[in-house]
Design a protein around this nucleic acid. Structure first.
Length: 419
RNA sequence: GUGGCCGUAGCUCAGGUGGUUAGAGCGCCAGGUUGUGGCCCUGGAGGUCGGGGGUUCGAGUCCCCUCGGUCACCCCA
C-alpha cells in the first residue's frame, strides 16, 4: 500500500456488513444459549495491569512474548488483554459477586503480538463463560456440554473434542518435575528447537509437532499416571457425565493448553473442516488456583473460550450459519422533488417499518434500480400524478402483480397488512 | 522472531524476450425505454502499475532497498 494511505494494522481486520451481521447473530445466539443456563454478561476492560496476566502465565508464550504492553501516562505498566479468563477472575476477586457458582459470560477482543496467518490475528475475538465458586465435576460437564451444544446449534458437525486432566496443582507440579527430568536425560534426542523448552516448560514439549521430539515423547511418562486417586476419580466422573449426555470425546493425556493455570479438567475443540494448523476453535479448563494467584480467596473455577473468527471460518468450511440478509422491506421512489420521500420514509420508520429510499434526485429508472438492489419487497412510487392526488403507487418487487394506487394516509395500514 | 509466494482500477485478474495515450470482466454512474427494477445493448467515471532508488534513449516489465499482503514454522482462538 502507498505510504500516504492508512490501512488496518497488521493482523487486524475491518468487518463490514453483511459479514458483520453474522457476528451480531453469533453473539446474540451465544447470549441466549448460555443465558438460558444462568450465565450473565460481564463487561470487563480490554486492558489490565500487566501483573494480572503476568502472574497467571509466566511460562507461556502468550504472556512472555506476545503481549501488547505499554506504560500509561501515570507510569503504570499495562497490557491489552491477551486472553479473557484472567480479567474475569480479577473482576471476581475484586467484587466477590454472589453465587455458588457465579456464572458469567463475556465477549470481546484479545490481543497477541504474533505473525498473522490464516485464522490467526493480532486482534481476535472470543466468546466465553466462566463459573466460579464450585468444584463439582458436574459443573465441568455442564461447561463442556454448553460448548459442544453451541457448535452443534450453529450447524457444525465436524468438530472433535479432546479432554485431559492435569490433576491438582500438586499433581501438575510433580508431573512437570518427573517429565522435566525424564526429558532432560533424553535432551540430545529431541529436536534442537525443543531443548530449551525442557527447562522452561516441560509439558509444552509434549505439544511439539517436530518428528524427532515426537519420537521421544511417545514413550514419555503420562500425566494420567501421576494423578492422585481423588483426581483420577474426579476425572472419571466428568467423563461419565459426558457419556451420559452423549457428548463424544477422546481422552488425550498429551493435551497441553496454552495457559499454565489449568488444573483437573482441560479440553479443546478442533474443527476437522479447517485445514492446516489453526483448527482449534475453542477450549478451556478448570483453574482452581487462579483466584488465589490474583490475590483473592482460594476459589475453584472453570470456563471456556471460543474464537469468533475461527468459528465463522469453520462455519464457512462446512457451509453453515450464513450471513442474514439485512434488507429493508420498503423502498421509496420519489421522482418529484424528494420531499415526499423525505417525509414518508420518516413516517414509515416511526411506525416501526423497515424503509429506505433513493437519494440525489435521480431518474425513476435509476431509483427503481436502487430499489431492486436494496432487496426491498415493495417499492412506493411517487410521481407528479401521485403527488397531486395525495397517493402512492405500490409496486411488488418480487412478484409479477399489477401495481396499485392507494391514498397516502392509508399507506402504513396497507403495508402492515402486506408484510 | 524465521522462511516461501505475491503486490497493475472498488473487486478478480490480463499485460511473450523492456518500446507509442496501461487493458478485460464484475461493480459503480448515465443513456437506450422523456413514469417503472431484474435481462440485453451503448457510453462514462475510476490507475502517481505499493513506495523509493538504480540500469537504459526508453521500465508495469530488469536489479537493489523498503513497505504491505498471504501462506507455513513457532504458538494459539
Amino acid at each position: 500500500m502507498a505510504d500516504s494511505s492508512f490501512t488496518a494494522p497488521s493482523g487486524t481486520h475491518d468487518v463490514l456488513a453483511p459479514e458483520s451481521s453474522r457476528w451480531g447473530s453469533l453473539v446474540a445466539h451465544f447470549a441466549g444459549h448460555v443465558g438460558r443456563a444462568g450465565y450473565g454478561l460481564v463487561i470487563s476492560p480490554m486492558f489490565e495491569e500487566l501483573g494480572v496476566f503476568h502472574r497467571v502465565g509466566e511460562g507461556t508464550d502468550i504472556v512472555t512474548k506476545e503481549m501488547y504492553d505499554f506504560t500509561d501516562k501515570g507510569g503504570r505498566h499495562m497490557a491489552l488483554r491477551p486472553e479473557g479468563t484472567a480479567s474475569i477472575v480479577r473482576a471476581y476477586v475484586q467484587h466477590r459477586p454472589v453465587g455458588s457458582p457465579w456464572k458469567a459470560w463475556y465477549v470481546g477482543p484479545n490481543f497477541r503480538y504474533e505473525r498473522p496467518q490464516a485464522g490467526r490475528y493480532r486482534q481476535h475475538h472470543q466468546l466465553g463463560i466462566e463459573a466460579m465458586g464450585a468444584d463439582d465435576p458436574d459443573l465441568d460437564v455442564e461447561v463442556i456440554a454448553l460448548q459442544a451444544d453451541l457448535y452443534a446449534s450453529l450447524g457444525l458437525r465436524q468438530v472433535d473434542l479432546v479432554v485431559n486432566s492435569m490433576g491438582t496443582a500438586d499433581d501438575r507440579s510433580s508431573y512437570t518435575e518427573t517429565l522435566g527430568a525424564w526429558l532432560g536425560e533424553r535432551s540430545d534426542d529431541l529436536d534442537p528447537a525443543d531443548r530449551p523448552t525442557v527447562a522452561t516448560n516441560p509439558m509444552r514439549v509434549l505439544d511439539s509437532k517436530r518428528a524427532a521430539t515426537r519420537a521421544v515423547t511417545d514413550d514419555a511418562p503420562r500425566i494420567d499416571e501421576s494423578l492422585t486417586t481423588e483426581a483420577r476419580d474426579r476425572f472419571a466422573r466428568v467423563l461419565e457425565g459426558l457419556d451420559a449426555l452423549g457428548i463424544e470425546h477422546r481422552v488425550e493425556p498429551r493435551l497441553v493448553r496454552g495457559l499454565d493455570y489449568y488444573t483437573h479438567t482441560t479440553f479443546e475443540f478442533q474443527a476437522r473442516a479447517l485445514e492446516g494448523a489453526q483448527n482449534g476453535i475453542g477450549g478451556g479448563g478448570r483453574y482452581d488456583g487462579l483466584a488465589q494467584a490474583l490475590g483473592g480467596p482460594s476459589t475453584p473455577g472453570i470456563g471456556f473460550g471460543t474464537g469468533i473468527e475461527r468459528m465463522l471460518l469453520a462455519c464457512d468450511a462446512e457451509g453453515v450459519f450464513p450471513a442474514a440478509e439485512a434488507a429493508s422491506s420498503i423502498f421509496i421512489v420519489d421522482v418529484v422533488d424528494g420531499t415526499h420521500a423525505r417525509d414518508l420514509v420518516a413516517d414509515l420508520r416511526r411506525a416501526g417499518l423497515a424503509a429506505d429510499r433513493a437519494y440525489g434526485g435521480r431518474s425513476m429508472k435509476s431509483q427503481m434500480k436502487a430499489a431492486d438492489r436494496s432487496g426491498a419487497a415493495i417499492a412506493l412510487i411517487i410521481g407528479e400524478d401521485e403527488a397531486a392526488a395525495d397517493e402512492v403507487t405500490v409496486r411488488d418487487l418480487r412478484h409479477d402483480e399489477p401495481q396499485e394506487r392507494i391514498a397516502l394516509d392509508t399507506v402504513i395500514d396497507h403495508l402492515r397488512k402486506r408484510l
